[in-house]
Computed example of a mutant assay.
Amino acid sequence: MSYSLLRPFLFSMDPEKAHEFTLELLEKAHKAKLLGFVYAQQSLPVECMGMVFNNPVGLAAGLDKNADYIDALGELGFGFIEVGTVTPKPQEGNQKPRMFRLKEANAIINRMGFNNKGVDHLIRNMRKCKYKGNIGINIGKNAITPVEHAAADYIYCLERVYPYASYITVNISSPNTKNLRDLQSGDALRKLLFEIKSRHLQLAVDYGFYVPLVLKVAPDLEPEQIEFICQQLLDFDIDGLITTNTTISRIGVEDLPNGNEAGGLSGRPVSHMSTMVLEQFTDILEDKVAVIGVGGIDSGDKAVKKLQAGASLVQLYSGLIYKGPSLVQESIQAIGGYYDTLES
């Protein structure tokens, strides 16, 4: 079924229920071996963080928090998939309703609060998945863990997901876990990265292989904060950076229905902001840290703009809700055209 025909039905449902319904429908189509006939896997190899990605278009964390649907999602043509955010213990997340569409702006506001089934459930799914592409695992802290003890939660998850991840993302940028974004600044960030990186290096020795470590940051950063984070990335030899998570800004949507709901705003309104922040990071980092661009990609042109701003890879999420899986192919084709232009 064409997504354009399915979308009105999905948009008549509560957003969170529509999310769950869509994933279950996708899983059924996967098991019936229908997806491969519709979504061809496009090869556009990219080397990043010491790995080869089949193409540079990935799925952002948050859509498949528990790694329940990796094989089905993999058939949509993604070059890589990021699952999570996962926490040490299962948690319900914030009170419902906690996800809101802003249809006039092709946007979403969510305040999910890291709802997930816990790291052990995710690992069980990782052990049985058959997807051959790279899989990032996004880790966070439980809501009941005081922010000053956050490192223990991150390290707990790091230790458990290490042998199953192509890369591991440390998520300190969700606006929906109290005080989490405090970890992006000052001594809190330095202490967190020191503790995580120390354990990360020991795990590489213990397992005999190295899994890249990535940091995910918010778009709501001042230039001096960006400079500080860049210095920490270099000081602690962090392999990658994801820019950006959702924004707490409501510029341009404040007068829309649901526009002032609490939570993180994603989709088209965050596109320019996230790309500008990405560019500020890449100007300072000068290719010393791999950068993944995410935020407001709802067309192939928007995906290309992330690469023009310095990203090596891109990730999709909210754009898929409004445009459907065809956005994956559109983005790959646009990036392929951009590569051709660079070569010529």
Rank of each mutant, 00 (worst) to 15 (best):
H121N: 06
S249C: 04
A152Q: 13
L122C: 00
G140A: 02
A60V: 05
M276F: 07
F21K: 05
N138R: 06
T169H: 01
A40D: 15
L189W: 08
L34N: 10
A152H: 10
Y317C: 11
I109V: 08
P15E: 10
G133K: 00
K33I: 06
T22N: 01
E20A: 14
V83F: 06
E47V: 08
L327F: 03
F236I: 05
I144D: 09
Y317S: 10
D235H: 13
K117Q: 14
I242A: 09
M276H: 09
G84T: 07
N66Q: 07
A188L: 13
D237P: 01
P223R: 01
G296R: 03
D239M: 13
N171E: 04
N142D: 01
M49P: 06
Y167M: 12
L278F: 08
L180C: 09
M99G: 01
A204R: 11
N115S: 06
D301Y: 08
P325M: 14
L183W: 09
V291W: 06
D68Y: 10
L192F: 05
R268M: 09
V214S: 09
G263T: 01
D206E: 15
V214Q: 10
V270Q: 01
F209M: 08
R111P: 03
A309L: 04
K141M: 00
K89E: 13
G337K: 00
S2P: 15
I321A: 05
T341R: 12
L256C: 10
D64E: 06
G337F: 00
V205L: 12
V38L: 14
H272P: 00
K141G: 00
L44F: 13
Q308A: 14
V253I: 15
E20N: 14
K216V: 05
Q42D: 15
D120A: 06
V161L: 11
D298N: 14
G36Y: 01
E27G: 12
R268N: 11
R7K: 14
L234P: 00
L221C: 09
L201A: 07
F209Q: 07
K305Y: 07
I229V: 10
F11P: 07
H121I: 02
K117W: 00
E286R: 15
S2D: 15
L192R: 10
K117T: 02
N176D: 11
G240A: 14
G79F: 06
V161K: 10
P163T: 05
V328P: 02
L201R: 14
S43T: 13
T169G: 03
